[in-house]
Design a binder for these strands. Structure first.
Ligand SMILES: [Zn+2]
Ligand SMILES: [Zn+2]
Ligand SMILES: [Zn+2]
Ligand SMILES: [Zn+2]
Lengths: 140, 140
DNA sequence: GTTGGAAATGCGAAACTCTATCATTTCACT
DNA sequence: AGTGAAATGATAGAGTTTCGCATTTCCAAC
């Protein structure tokens, strides 16, 4: 029962919030913009106002249900928090997104923050490149 | 003579481009938005249209003269390419920006890209935290 | 040094993503 | 069911960046 998840997160269990949460859980695509969610839900017959999508995703982020990424400038990408923390490697040709987690990098980041006197709160790491498929097909 | 630098970069040596390049070289602040550049140049008495600032900075980026960063969502930050490659650690309270370069992380990134079958073209790493000054003054 | 044409600039309008406003609806609790 | 607080939807607006086009500037050939 997803309404329990929302209550636990301190959010009233409204129909739009339930629909959005269900949609994210059912989606095959793990990383989506607000607009992506809006359009995909429309096609599913679940119409929720775009402003509400933005509001709810921001609330989900604050509640720790989703994570916001900035793969490229222009728009935020959202991802339901299911697995554990990971970073992303992105194809600059086709937009494919893969995930990875590197304990060495994670640890180095903390060391760097410490060396600079910072109290680290977050980090973002994006590797850009050409994915295996695009390399094969020689897209330009 | 900066006009040689522009010619070498494949750009016609126009007055606005020369002014912008000189300004970037003279600026104490290393990371600036297009709007920052526009306003600072205005105060210097060097008026260049905002659209031109955007165009020229984008051309400078393509020519390898500057690097574009996405410290936070909303607007691009530009930095003149002078030293060597580095990444950034940012204060979430005051906006301070520090730089670092970690050979271990750099190498791990290549390994990850290789393991995933990607041909790596670029990467972005931002560490967010609270800087030494803000920790001391206990800003919230 | 003029001149001609390609390229760059400046201005305003427009695109794009996201947020604010506010009347209306929905939710949670008696 | 009734009540008040909170959420939603539609639209307007804000902030950043790009576009379109008339005018100006650059540069190389005369
Ligand atoms: Zn690809
Ligand atoms: Zn992910
Ligand atoms: Zn600070
Ligand atoms: Zn820098």
């Amino acid at each position: 029962m997803e309404s329990q998840d929302l209550k636990k997160a301190g959010l009233k269990a409204t129909l739009p919030r339930l629909k959005i949460l269900k949609f994210l859980e059912a989606s095959q695509v793990r990383h989506m913009s607000a607009e992506d969610v809006y359009k995909a839900m429309l096609e599913n017959g679940d119409e929720v106002g775009l402003a509400t999508i933005y509001r709810v995703l921001t609330q989900f982020e604050a509640a720790g249900l989703v994570t916001r990424h900035h793969f490229d400038e222009g728009h935020s990408m959202f991802e339901l928090n299911q697995g554990s923390h990971h970073d992303h490697i992105l194809c600059v040709k086709c937009g494919r997104v893969d995930e990875f987690m590197d304990p060495v990098i994670e640890e180095q980041q903390h060391k760097i923050a410490e060396a600079k006197g910072y109290e680290m709160t977050d980090h973002a790491l994006y590797i850009y490149g050409i994915c295996p498929n695009c390399r094969k097909s020689g897209k330009k």
